[in-house]
Design a protein around this nucleic acid. Structure first.
Lengths: 251, 251
DNA sequence: CGCGGTCGTTGATCTGGGTCAAGGTGGCGC
DNA sequence: GCGCCACCTTGACCCAGATCAACGACCGCG
């Protein structure tokens, strides 16, 4: 059982149920989905679960890359810094996200919890063992990495060539697409509610903008009745297709 | 032997030496390096070699992703387009570069030859077979993909947060780093000659700038005696460390 | 309930890099 | 050799988004 001690950055869970993985709600969304139920105990034995409090980091850019992580709850931001403090958020890691793929000796980015984050931590050596024993896991990781690459290229297009308006629209549409798919018909006017665990500053650093531009642009989209902003951590997409057209540069 | 027919975009080599891979000069730089000499014939049999003339594409964004490619000679640019023609070059693929990692049904980017490019082409099915038979190859691909991800994150930092001057400096330093390492001592004043197979337009599209800004910024670096520009396809780095400081935002 | 602090919004102004425009340059074919 | 054409450079001006500044909204705490 995980001890939930407030005020400490990391809480490492020492008394583990050998069947944690079997009941893990993150499994269907993560690389662990390729491991059979029968083998899950091996996986569980190799991992340590950790809780990271908001604002605290569990990966530091440039630090020794000794571990791999799998997010099982919450959201973290991944970012790189320049010496003078300029920040680029390279992504947000939600449930199921696999972190630490960088094979070099040190991490290429930092990871900081936005909400209380729970992760499974694997040592480099343990992961290697698992990969040798479960080729399906290695295949899955290659698949995940390939997908990440596609996403990264899309983000390069955004950062290099899109306007502020297009960047915000792209961000909102991407967030809508990662909502648990509702089964009902998708109409043009369907209300889609997005949860934003990150601040405006994080969004700005993700989109290569300033906080003021993010704020102004969202205000304008609201004035145009494309979105609603019920509160700072929620946005409702009112006109999905219109926003999608803006996102893809068709407006 | 490869027929070198000018004026056609793609030349597919049909009469192949079963030992092409054994003598391939690109092997040490490519994923093929993990395959034993004894198994190289299998690899060679699975591949078709192709020559692509400058200006011609061998991968189209959105097209059916049926093949994987390994560059064995020349350089290609990889890019994504917006509907109105805005372009983002996501990378340059030189000798040894493995292309097509995207596991989805269609390619996420286009690839166009800058110089005559030679590639080995594998069908999706053949590659899958090879991956199943040579786990080392799969490991290597995961390693390559992970490295690509690190590079992509670095490029996001560049596109999102660096100034034009820092972008050009980063580009030049990255090019210097991929030169065949000369064994001599690296001094601050060491002349390092970079070959640029791409146009200023390609560089601009890679760095998220316009052609004019690239030109102006290079002129300024030349005026400051940090670089020399003997001709349009070559740049000599005169002050590596000064340029490196600019690249990393320390100036 | 008031206070301080963080986060977000909005307005005024500034500027790095984009846009528009006008040459320069060099390689290639005839 | 000469002219064409693609590529590059340089200058003048402009604008999207950054910067600077002020204020508002919300929340936890004493």
């Amino acid at each position: 059982m995980t001890a939930m001690i407030r005020g400490r950055p990391l809480i490492i869970d020492t008394h583990r149920d050998p069947n944690v993985c079997l009941h893990c709600q993150a499994r269907p969304f993560s690389v662990c989905s390729v491991i059979d139920d029968a083998d899950l105990q091996r996986l569980g034995a190799a991992a340590v679960t950790m809780t990271v409090q908001p604002g605290h980091s569990f990966i530091q850019e440039g630090g020794q890359a000794e571990h791999f992580f799998n997010v099982t709850a919450g959201t973290a931001k991944l970012y790189k810094l320049l010496p003078d403090g300029r920040r680029q958020v390279t992504g947000f890691a939600g449930v199921g996200y696999f972190l630490g793929l960088a094979v070099s000796a040190s991490y290429a980015f930092s990871a900081e919890a936005l909400e209380p984050v729970q992760v499974c931590r694997f040592s480099r050596a343990k992961l290697r063992e698992l990969l040798d024993d479960f080729p399906a896991l290695e295949k899955k990781l290659l698949e995940v990495a390939s997908h990440e690459l596609v996403v990264a290229q899309e983000q390069m297009l955004l950062l290099g060539r899109k306007t502020a308006r297009e960047r915000l629209a792209s961000f909102l549409i991407a967030r809508v697409k990662m909502l648990p798919h509702c089964m009902g018909q998708q109409t043009v006017a369907t209300k889609e509610r997005i949860d934003l665990p990150m601040t405006r500053m994080d969004i700005a650093d993700y989109l290569g903008l300033t906080i003021e531009t993010v704020s102004r642009t969202l205000s304008r989209l609201r004035a145009e009745k494309l979105i609603e902003i019920p509160n700072n951590s929620e946005i409702v997409v009112l006109k999905h297709t219109a926003l999608d057209n803006i996102a893809t540069g068709m407006t």
